[in-house]
């Protein structure tokens, strides 16, 4: 792995003294699809925001290309962000714009292309996600799966080198999930981009990604290709991959002894 477009070294991040990440190392080779997995609240989305420069690390660094993200000035950061596309959890489409205008938004903001050119580009992007026919609908009129696809078209509007997906499967029906899986794979290969997928859907993710990082307790707990991880004997990975209720990740939140709690009768 010599050509890593995104490189995370010894990254620590936290809010108000409580560390969420404690020295994470990850690398994302060019052209691959890499999944970041972990339980809810393990700070997966935060990693995407650190890569996008919306948050600053407490320690360590994130490198995109040869640039350290948190050391960039305002203008350089904007330049860096133009190389990235991000799909937000609920799509984050602009509710006051139509589907067409949503996809055209990044082009209008960052290029001075003539309207006819923008129209062609928007049509191409919308066609890629199969929603060319929905261009005149308002963002609020779309179903969850459609909104996610429009958001995907918007994320790749400027042909980014890095595409980040924040929980792309959350709240979707199985058919939409399959559609999104295919789109991520196809867009990645067609654009020659690198994709980072944050998710906790093991089954879906393992079917199309190239490499997986598991994070737990603020560190990378396991990494490998999907095939390797399926065979993994690490208890945490085993629990996660096979969806068992109890294991290293306990079912109960830390609490005093059950019997004593019940007998005491009231909380003081």
């Amino acid at each position: 792995m010599t050509d890593n477009i995104v490189q995370i070294d010894n990254l620590s991040f936290g809010y108000k003294g409580r560390l969420l990440h404690k020295g994470i190392n990850m690398s994302f080779p060019r052209g691959k699809i890499v999944a970041i997995m972990g339980g809810s609240g393990s700070g997966k989305t935060t990693i995407l925001r650190l890569i996008g420069g919306q948050l600053k690390p407490v320690q360590g660094e994130v490198r995109v290309g040869d640039k350290v993200v948190h050391q960039q000035g305002r203008n350089d950061l904007q330049k860096l962000r133009r190389k990235m596309g991000m799909l937000f959890q609920q799509g984050a489409l602009f509710t006051d714009l139509s589907v067409y205008e949503n996809v055209a938004f990044p082009m209008r903001e960052h290029t001075s292309l003539p309207e006819s050119m923008i129209r062609d580009l928007v049509m191409m992007k919308l066609n890629a996600v199969g929603l060319r026919g929905a261009r005149d609908l308002m963002a609020t009129e779309l179903s969850g799966g459609m909104a996610r696809r429009v958001a995907l078209a918007r994320a790749v509007a400027l042909d980014p080198e890095i595409i980040m997906y924040d929980e792309p499967f959350a709240g979707l029906d199985p058919i939409s999930m399959g559609v999104i899986c295919n789109l991520i794979r196809n867009l990645n290969d067609a654009l020659g981009a690198t994709s980072l997928v944050v998710t906790h859907d093991v089954k879906e993710a393992f079917s199309f990604v190239d490499y997986v990082y598991f994070i737990a307790d603020g560190v990378v707990a396991a990494e490998g290709t999907p095939a390797e991880l399926r065979e993994s004997t690490l208890p945490f990975v085993h629990q996660f991959v096979h969806g068992e209720v109890d294991g290293p990740v306990p079912f109960h939140y830390a609490a005093p002894d059950y019997r004593r709690d019940m007998l005491r009768g009231r909380d003081v």
Binding site: G52, Q54, Q78, F88, Q90, L93, T95, E109
Partner: peptide
């Protein structure tokens, strides 16, 4: 309400990530 909702639905974040 409009700006609050744009924030709640991550539209402002999305804009920031688009370098806008």
């Amino acid at each position: 309400a409009e700006i609050g909702l744009m924030k709640a639905t991550e539209q402002l974040s999305a804009m920031e990530m688009m370098a806008v």
